[in-house]
């Protein structure tokens, strides 16, 4: 469970990205965070695995307050949280398999990982993750030989190999075409249902968020302005989050 207690974040340049966030996210949820660019979605998401440090308030993960942890403790926290990025963030010149197994590095001593030795069952785990994402046949291809959608699945396999309880996704489909987007979102749904992993995703497309997530968090100007079931979203709520009605070309369409 993740609990935000009056969390605030002010950047060094004075920008106040989070102005007092109070949230509880339970295990197994599929949460989509929606809102305008600059509303604080990314800051909110990245504060959970401390890619961004909050400046005020308390943030609990499984009842452990994380805002002061660092060093080895921080790395132990991060290894239990998968992260997916808009631009996949794979090493393009490295094989798919090595990219995926790199999700395990924080489970081992520096020396063992430097010489590239991983236990057999972890290599199997990496291959199983690739199989779950349907790209086992690409295991030994170089990452840059894969299409965008396939690369995002490699990133998902890397996250799965961490055996996380939670996956954070920062605009996971923003650089994919509409058809690949649906496939990757289906993969997220599968991971959420079959593996029981909590998913928190920043979403650009409202209709995708409504279709895949059980819970929607609307963020506006550093504050949560909506928090509820995706089925409860109405036109008026969207107007409140985005400041105006969405035009036809701002949703993905069917």
């Amino acid at each position: 469970m993740i609990r935000f207690v009056d969390v605030k974040k002010t950047y060094l340049n004075g920008v106040q990205a989070l102005k007092g966030i109070n949230l509880e996210i339970h295990d197994g949820e599929f949460v989509a965070i929606i809102g305008l660019s600059g509303a604080g979605k990314s800051t909110l998401l990245r504060s959970i695995n401390k890619m961004i440090d909050i400046t005020e308030g308390e943030l609990y993960i499984d009842d452990v307050e994380i805002s002061s942890i660092k060093g080895k403790e921080l790395r132990m926290l991060r290894r239990s949280i998968g992260m997916i990025f808009q631009s996949f963030n794979l090493v393009r010149r490295m094989s798919v398999f090595n990219n995926v197994i790199s999700g395990r590095v924080a489970y081992h001593s520096t020396f063992k990982t430097l010489i590239g030795r991983f236990p057999a069952q972890e290599k199997i785990l990496a291959l199983e993750s690739l199989e779950a994402m349907g790209i086992l046949d690409k295991a030994f291809a170089r990452a840059d030989q894969l299409s965008g959608g396939q690369q995002q699945r490699v990133a998902l396999a890397r996250a799965l190999t961490q055996q996380p309880k939670l996956i954070l996704a920062d605009e996971p489909v923003a650089s994919l075409d509409p058809i690949t987007t649906i496939q990757v979102m289906d993969d997220f749904a599968k991971i959420n249902k079959e593996f029981g992993i909590t998913i928190i995703a920043n979403m650009h497309h409202v209709d995708l968020a409504l279709k895949y997530a059980n819970r929607i968090i609307g963020v506006k100007d550093g504050l949560v302005v909506f928090d509820g079931k995706s089925t409860d979203i109405t036109e008026d709520i969207l107007v409140n989050i985005y400041g105006r009605t969405l035009k036809h070309d701002e949703v993905l369409g069917e």
Partner: peptide, 8 residues
Amino acid sequence: EALDAVGA
């Protein structure tokens, strides 16, 4: 950035 996020 991704390796930071896995705890490397």
